Simulated scan of single mutants.
Amino acid sequence: MFPMRASLVSLLAAVILVGCSSGGTASKAPEVAAAPNQDGRCEASGAAFAVGKPASAELLEQARKASGAQLARVLKPDDAVTLEYRSERLNLHADEKGVIARVNCG
């Protein structure tokens, strides 16, 4: 009885893991125009146009695409931030008024 239960539990665990894995059959969001670099790493110079403009969701997305980054965020002066460096993330640093003061990757 015990070996049969162990087999069933193992089979159930395998089915759950297969269900959680990402397969190629799921539909993805349509891809946007090719970014300057195709490896997903951020190139801050591509987003330099954002400096001096008010922070917005539209500006963030335009800057992310222009830099080739996979991720992007707006950082305000009092925001708590993590200290890890992520080469695929663009940071737009806003001042107290919400205007982008500088851009960098990480």
Rank of each mutant, 00 (worst) to 15 (best):
A50H: 05
N37L: 09
A47L: 05
L59W: 06
A26W: 12
A55H: 04
S67K: 00
A44P: 12
M4P: 00
A26S: 13
R5M: 11
V81D: 02
A29I: 11
V18Y: 11
R5I: 15
A44E: 08
F2N: 15
R41W: 01
P3I: 10
R89K: 13
A55S: 06
L17E: 14
K65V: 03
G98Q: 09
C20Y: 10
P54L: 07
A44R: 02
V9D: 07
A13T: 15
G68M: 03
A47D: 04
G23A: 12
R41E: 00
A44G: 07
A50K: 01
L83K: 05
A94M: 06
Q38K: 11
A48Y: 08
L59Q: 02
E84C: 03
G98D: 09
R89I: 01
P30D: 10
G40F: 07
A80M: 08
R64D: 06
G68Q: 04
L75H: 06
L92T: 02
A94D: 04
L12G: 14
E61M: 13
P3F: 10
F49L: 09
G40Y: 08
N104P: 08
D79Q: 06
A69T: 01
H93G: 00
A57K: 09
P77C: 00
A55I: 05
N91H: 14
K97Q: 15
L11S: 14
D79Y: 06
E84S: 06
L90F: 05
N91I: 06
L71N: 07
S67L: 01
G40N: 12
V81S: 05
C20I: 07
T25G: 15
V74E: 02
A29K: 08
K53S: 07
R64Q: 09
A26P: 04
D39S: 08
K28D: 07
E43G: 11
A14P: 04
E88D: 07
A80W: 14
I16Q: 09
Y85N: 01
G98P: 03
V18L: 14
A69M: 00
L90M: 08
A26L: 12
A13N: 12
L60V: 04
K97A: 14
S7E: 11
A63Y: 00
A57E: 14
P3N: 14
L8G: 05
L17H: 07
V18N: 04
A55Q: 02
M1F: 13
I100L: 10
D39R: 13
R89Q: 08
G24L: 12
K76C: 10
L60Y: 02
E84Q: 08
A34I: 08
C20W: 11
L11D: 11
A63C: 03
L12Y: 13
P36V: 06
N91Y: 02
G46N: 05
P54K: 11
R5H: 06
G23V: 08
S87N: 10
A47R: 00
A101Y: 04
A6G: 01
M1A: 12
G19Y: 03
A14M: 14
R86A: 00
A55G: 01
A57D: 15
A13Q: 09
G52Y: 07
R5P: 04
G68S: 12
R102I: 02
H93L: 10
A47W: 01
F49D: 01
A80H: 10
R86E: 00
R64E: 00
S45D: 11
L83R: 15
H93A: 07
P36C: 07
V32M: 07
I100C: 04
L83Q: 03
E84K: 03
K97Y: 10
A44M: 12
Q38P: 02
P30S: 13
R102N: 02
A47H: 03
